[in-house]
C-alpha cells in the first residue's frame, strides 16, 4: 500500500470513528466497567449496610441496635481475638517461610528448581476439602495418620489439637500456613527473579555473603513484594472461611470461631440477617481501616523499583 492510500484509509477510519455514537458519548467507554462495579460490588455492599439496620425478623428498622449487640456479644470479641491471632501469626510466618523457601530454591538449586517450586506450590492448588480431611486425620490422636507412625516408636498421642478450646485456633492456623506458604513463595520467586543479577555480582565482589547478602540486598529489594503480601494477608485473614468451617465449624464452643463462620451461622443457619449484616459491615470497615493504615504507613506510591517488581508480579 502506498503512502497516499494509507493516508486516505486512515482518514476514512477517523471519519467513521468521529461519526460513531461512542465517540460522541465518550463516557460510554467506561459504562460496562461502571455497571459491573455497581452491580457486583457497590449494590451488594449497600444492600448489606441497609440490612444491618434491620431487626432480627428482617423487617423492622432497628437503627444501630445490631451494632450495639455486636459490641456486647462475647462471641464477637472472641472472634476478634481469634482473627488477631490468625493475622499476627499467619502473615509473618508465611512470609518468612515463603521467602526462605523461595531464596533457597532460586539461589541454591538448578536442575531440581521446577520440582521444588511445584511441590511447595501444590498445597495452594489443593482443594480445601481435601486439605481439611487429611489434616483432621493427621491431628486425630487415637487413629490418626501421625499416630500410626508414632505407634512404631511407642508414642501415644493424648492431645486432640482440634478438640481442645485452648489449641483449636492454633491447630487451624498451622494448616492455613501449610496451605498458603506456597503462595508467598511464588510471589517472592517472582521478586527474586526481578532483582538484577548485576546487583548480586556487585554485592559478592564487595564481600557480601550468606546472611549479609540476604539481609542487606535481597530483603530490602523484596520489600514491594512483602508489602503486597501484607496487604493480601490482612484481606485474606478477614476472608478466611472454608478451612475453619470444614475442620471445626468454629468450635468447640466458639473457641475457633472467626468472622466468616460466625457471619455464616448468624445469616444462613440462624437466619438473623440483620445481625450477620452488621457483623459484615464491621469486617468491611476493619478491612478498609487496616488497608488504609498499611498504605499510609508503608507508602502507597510505588517507586521505580517497585513498579518494575509489580509489573513482574502482575498476571498480565
Amino acid at each position: 500500500m502506498n503512502k497516499t492510500a494509507a493516508a486516505e484509509s486512515e482518514k476514512k477510519l477517523l471519519q467513521v470513528r468521529r461519526g460513531s455514537w461512542v465517540e460522541q458519548f465518550p463516557y460510554l467507554y467506561v459504562l460496562p466497567a461502571t455497571l459491573m462495579f455497581v452491580g457486583l460490588v457497590a449494590y451488594p455492599i449497600l444492600w448489606v449496610i441497609c440490612e444491618s439496620f434491620r431487626g432480627a425478623n428482617g423487617k423492622d428498622f432497628a437503627g444501630l441496635d445490631q451494632y450495639v449487640r455486636a459490641l456486647s456479644d462475647p462471641v464477637f470479641w472472641r472472634v476478634l481475638r481469634n482473627m488477631f491471632y490468625w493475622g499476627t501469626i499467619t502473615i509473618p510466618l508465611q512470609m518468612i517461610l515463603g521467602g526462605s523457601i523461595a531464596y533457597l530454591i532460586e539461589r541454591h538449586t538448578s536442575k531440581s528448581r521446577t520440582f521444588f517450586r511445584v511441590m511447595f506450590f501444590l498445597p495452594v492448588v489443593t482443594s480445601v476439602s481435601v486439605v481439611s480431611i487429611v489434616w483432621a486425620q493427621m491431628y486425630a490422636p487415637y487413629y490418626g495418620i501421625v499416630q500410626q507412625y508414632l505407634r512404631y516408636i511407642g508414642v501415644q498421642l493424648t492431645i486432640a489439637p482440634l478438640g481442645d478450646p485452648n489449641t483449636a485456633i492454633f491447630a487451624l492456623i498451622l494448616v492455613n500456613i501449610w496451605q498458603w506458604t506456597g503462595f508467598s513463595m511464588i510471589m517472592y520467586i517472582a521478586g527474586i527473579n526481578n532483582i538484577p543479577s548485576e546487583l548480586f555480582d556487585a554485592a559478592l565482589i564487595d564481600g557480601a555473603h550468606g546472611w549479609n547478602l540476604v539481609l542487606r540486598i535481597v530483603v530490602p529489594l523484596l520489600s514491594p513484594v512483602t508489602r503486597s503480601l501484607l496487604l493480601l494477608g490482612v484481606i485474606g485473614t478477614l476472608q478466611t472461611f472454608p478451612i475453619v468451617h470444614l475442620m471445626t465449624g468454629g468450635g468447640p464452643d466458639h473457641a475457633s470461631e472467626i468472622f466468616g463462620t460466625y457471619i455464616f451461622k448468624q445469616g444462613f443457619v440462624i437466619g438473623d440477617f440483620g445481625y450477620s449484616s452488621a457483623l459484615s459491615v464491621l469486617v468491611l470497615f476493619l478491612a478498609l481501616g487496616l488497608s488504609l493504615l498499611q498504605i499510609t504507613v508503608l507508602g502507597s506510591r510505588l517507586g521505580p523499583q517497585t513498579r518494575r517488581s509489580a509489573s513482574v508480579l502482575s498476571p498480565n
Binding site: I133, A136, Q137, Y139, A140, P141, Y142, Y143, G144, L157, T158, I159, A160, P161, L162, G163, D164, A168, A171, M247, T248, G251, P252
Partner: peptide
C-alpha cells in the same frame, strides 16, 4: 468416645472407619 472425639467428624471419616 474415642480420644480426640471433639476434633472428629462423623462423615466421611467416622463412617469410613
Amino acid at each position: 468416645f474415642q480420644q480426640g472425639a471433639l476434633g472428629a467428624h462423623a462423615y466421611p471419616t467416622g463412617a469410613q472407619l
